[in-house]
């Protein structure tokens, strides 16, 4: 009898343990890159470094940031890759990042890296807000094309707008942070109060508003340029609108978690992440990348985009992130009725 139980239990334990086991030099990479972007990037890395086994944890910017902060005492990630620079600055302020100068740092635009001599993070590309405007639905519902952010507060847009929740979405936060910077705190919040009246729903991710606009579920999606370009390329009846007041933007950047137990592999990864080869891949998706000369315009995004980026105060955006988000949640989250 006893042998029966022991063998059963042993078999169970073995089977469970087997599912828990893994092998190889492993690097855990936290990223907020889009799920349809990073697989192509990784192929390049894997070709160059087949010995390093990557485990990718992907989620929205806000969630990756919150996760990294929550795991502060017991970090899981080795590398953070493709996360908003504002978030990386936040992590740096918490001493979570290991300063490292990747090979080829000189080729990076000086304004797209941590200003310290040995930077804690290095930028990869710029992503910026953009409006996805569904022309078919707009015609059907008589919704005019917006030209500016202010336009969106007009009653004509009531129930047709959808934007990302800045608490979870980096795209959402860069919009909110940009509005507060270009309009000033008081006017910025007043603008968002008015905007809130027109918003149908706040989404978890920054891509979703554009995808919903592409599907005609909502007419106007506040999103970002990569997703707008991609959705249009897939055949959605979209116009990509860059509002006249200027575009919120952020950098996607790479950094090494100081508590990593595989620092060499992490450095290898960081070197690759800012290499020309990687930059060429980023340039497929983003109009502005950190290595001048590599970048090229996106098919459907107006070439003026680089000029329309606001003068972004990253330090301010990082420092005030928590305050802004809690204010935002207080004002707009959990209001019971959907505005339709």
């Amino acid at each position: 009898m006893r042998t029966f139980w022991t063998t059963t239990v042993a078999a169970g334990a073995a089977a469970l343990a087997a599912t828990a086991a893994s092998a190889g030099e492993k690097l855990t990479v936290y990223t907020a890159l889009e799920a349809d972007q990073y697989p192509a990037y990784l192929e390049s890395f894997k070709a160059a470094h087949p010995d390093i086994d990557l485990e990718i944890v992907r989620d929205s910017t806000g969630i990756v940031t919150a996760k990294l902060l929550a795991e502060k005492a017991n970090p899981v990630a080795d590398v953070v890759w493709g996360l908003a620079a504002t978030s990386l600055m936040l992590l740096d302020a918490e001493d979570l990042l290991m300063p490292y100068a990747p090979a080829g740092l000189d080729a990076i635009k000086p304004n797209m890296r941590d200003s310290a001599d040995t930077p804690s993070w290095v930028g990869m590309d710029v992503w910026s807000s953009a409006i996805c405007f569904n022309t078919v639905e707009a015609a059907k519902k008589n919704v005019p094309a917006p030209a500016s952010w202010q336009d969106l507060t007009k009653p004509a847009y009531k129930g047709h707008l959808v934007m990302p929740n800045p608490a979870s979405s980096g795209t959402g936060y860069l919009m909110v942070s940009a509005w507060l910077q270009i309009m000033g705190e008081a006017d910025g919040w007043a603008f968002m109060d008015a905007l809130h009246q027109n918003i149908a729903t706040y989404t978890h991710s920054g891509s979703k508003p554009c995808k919903q606009a592409a599907a005609g579920e909502f007419t106007v999606g506040l999103s970002f340029e990569y997703r707008a370009n991609k959705s249009k390329k897939e055949g959605a009846p979209l116009d990509i609108i860059l509002p006249s007041e200027g575009l919120g933007w952020d950098m996607e950047a790479v950094g090494i978690i100081s508590a990593t137990d595989a620092p060499e592999a992490a450095k290898t990864f960081a070197d690759w992440a800012v290499s020309e080869e990687a930059m060429r891949l980023y340039a497929e998706n983003f109009a502005i990348v950190a290595m001048p000369g590599v970048q090229k315009p996106l098919e459907f995004v107006p070439a003026t985009i680089e000029d329309m980026l606001i003068d972004n105060d990253f330090a301010w955006a990082a420092e005030n992130r928590e305050r802004i988000l809690s204010e935002w949640s207080k004002r707009y989250d959990g209001k019971s009725e959907p505005k339709s």
Binding site: G62, A167, S168, A200, T201, Y202, D333, G334, P338, K339
Partner: peptide
């Protein structure tokens, strides 16, 4: 649920969205 929050989504938002365990 859109903007209509319920307890179940709150748990998720607090834990996954804000890591406020």
């Amino acid at each position: 649920g859109g903007q209509f929050n319920v307890l179940a989504t709150d748990v998720y938002k607090q834990v996954v969205g804000q890591q406020n365990f």
